[in-house]
């Protein structure tokens, strides 16, 4: 019973609460943060657009493409391999009439 009263008093403890305020010069700190976030974004853009970084990125992309193309051209796909194999098998099985006569005179 006593505890119920205590809980009720705790639940009502925010009655009449006043709004808290941030410290002095809050706007100045927000402005600083805004400038920081802008200079960070500008820094990233400046880094990406550096000629050396841009050229290196383009070279890497070209190399990846060349590697991918060469890899595709050199290696036949599994389907192509099985097609070649079945053509070979067919040509071995496709005996001429003379061959048949030779087997069964």
């Amino acid at each position: 019973m006593n505890q119920d009263k205590k809980i009720e008093s705790i639940l009502n403890s925010l009655n009449g609460v006043r709004r808290a305020s941030p410290g002095y010069y809050f706007f100045t700190r927000v402005q600083e943060r805004l400038n920081d976030s802008r200079s960070y974004i500008e820094g990233v853009i400046r880094f990406i657009t550096k000629p050396a970084i841009a050229i290196a990125t383009v070279m890497i992309i070209i190399l990846i493409n060349v590697f991918a193309v060469l890899n595709t051209v050199q290696k036949p796909t599994a389907q192509q391999t099985s097609e070649i194999a079945s053509v070979d098998e067919y040509s071995q099985m496709n005996l001429s009439l003379s061959d048949v006569e030779k087997i069964n005179p």
Partner: peptide, 27 residues
Amino acid sequence: QDMVYNTALGLMQNESDAEDVAQEVFV
């Protein structure tokens, strides 16, 4: 600023964290 800070303070329950969040909100 008071509305944003007070709400953040209620949720964060830490004054420096609430100030940090309030700054982030305005940015």
